[in-house]
């Protein structure tokens, strides 16, 4: 039973990270119908920013909590700036182009950002400082949950609640939903659609940055390629739940994370991806729009 709970909790940790990234994919898709393939790179850039900032601050002898707070803040700001800029440079000029063009542009941006970090940093794995404070749980919990698992889980839950409140109750959130449902009408009621799209990219990037810092600190090393792999997994989670749907991104991440964790624990870690993607294929066969996605029906 302990083993089950342990797997369950480590699955939740994975799910949390996937969810933080998947939200960016799903929100951007919801608002401009684009799969932002460069999103994984934004997450990677968040982790690198955190590495650089935390190292510099440590050299100057800042206290631990100041380092953590400033590092997270810097990663969020830096990633958001990248996300916002990528949208302005690579997607906005293609707003009225055929759907394939921005997609190619997104893949190009992804490759560009990977290589930029590769050249600016290194291709080796770099050690990442433990930014999540270590504390020991008492037995009988100590061997099933670690402090970083708990911090990741709590952070993700907090972020999700805040995001849900933002989207449901604030004027900006309502405008985001209105824009994703009917762009022309959004303009006609006076919503600045470009601004709303920009805000969506900023929020998605900020969430990815938080995910990047958390996972880098949890695993302890990063390189330029982490964004690609995490990005593909989070994208899978978003599609699984129904791309464009925010609750879908939560649910898809949860299912994907738990499946991987149990497959690793009970079968073999070699089969982790096999189970995850088989699940995706199965769900797409029976529910092509994803679990909570809507197959669009036009009412005349």
């Amino acid at each position: 039973m302990d083993y089950f709970i342990e797997l369950f909790l480590s699955g939740l940790t994975r799910s949390s990270i996937y969810a933080l990234i998947a939200l960016g994919y799903t929100m951007v898709y919801g608002i401009i119908g684009l799969i932002n393939f460069a999103h994984g790179e934004i997450y990677m850039i968040g982790a690198f920013t955190a590495l650089i900032v935390s190292t510099v601050l440590a050299i100057y002898g800042f206290p631990f909590f100041a380092i953590v707070a400033l590092t997270v803040l810097a990663a969020i700001i830096w990633s958001s700036a990248y996300g916002y800029t990528v949208e302005k440079i690579a997607y906005k000029p293609l707003r009225n182009a055929p759907r394939l063009s921005p997609l190619i542009s997104a893949i190009g941006m992804s490759i560009f950002l990977q290589n930029y970090v590769l050249l600016a940093q290194t291709s080796d794995f770099l050690p990442f400082p433990a930014l999540i404070p270590e504390f020991q749980f008492m037995e009988p919990y100590a061997h099933i949950i670690g402090s970083s698992d708990l911090v990741i889980l709590l952070t993700t839950i907090t972020v999700m609640v805040l995001l849900t409140l933002l989207i449901k109750y604030t004027k900006t959130g309502q405008a985001m939903r209105a824009t994703s449902q009917d762009k022309k009408m959004a303009m006609l009621v006076g919503i600045n659609v470009d601004k709303i799209i920009g805000i969506t990219f900023i929020i998605g990037s900020a969430l990815a940055a938080i995910g990047g810092v958390l996972i880098a600190s949890h695993i302890g090393q990063i390189n330029f390629y982490i964004g690609f792999i995490a990005g593909i997994k989070a994208f899978t989670a978003a599609v699984l739940g129904g791309i464009g749907s925010i609750p879908g991104a939560f649910l898809g991440s949860l299912i994907l994370g738990l499946t991987e964790s149990f497959a690793t624990g009970y079968v073999s870690s070699d089969y982790e991806d096999v189970f995850a993607f088989s699940l995706l294929v199965l769900i797409l066969i029976f529910r092509p729009a994803g679990l909570l996605g809507k197959s669009s029906i036009e009412k005349v």
């Binding site: 004027k171 309502q174 405008a175 939903r177 209105a178 449902q181 009917d182 009408m185 959004a186 009621v189 919503i191 009412k299």
Partner: peptide, 13 residues
Amino acid sequence: FPDLTIQENLNMG
């Protein structure tokens, strides 16, 4: 806006 409530639709106005 199909998925916004009626009140939210008015709010957007």
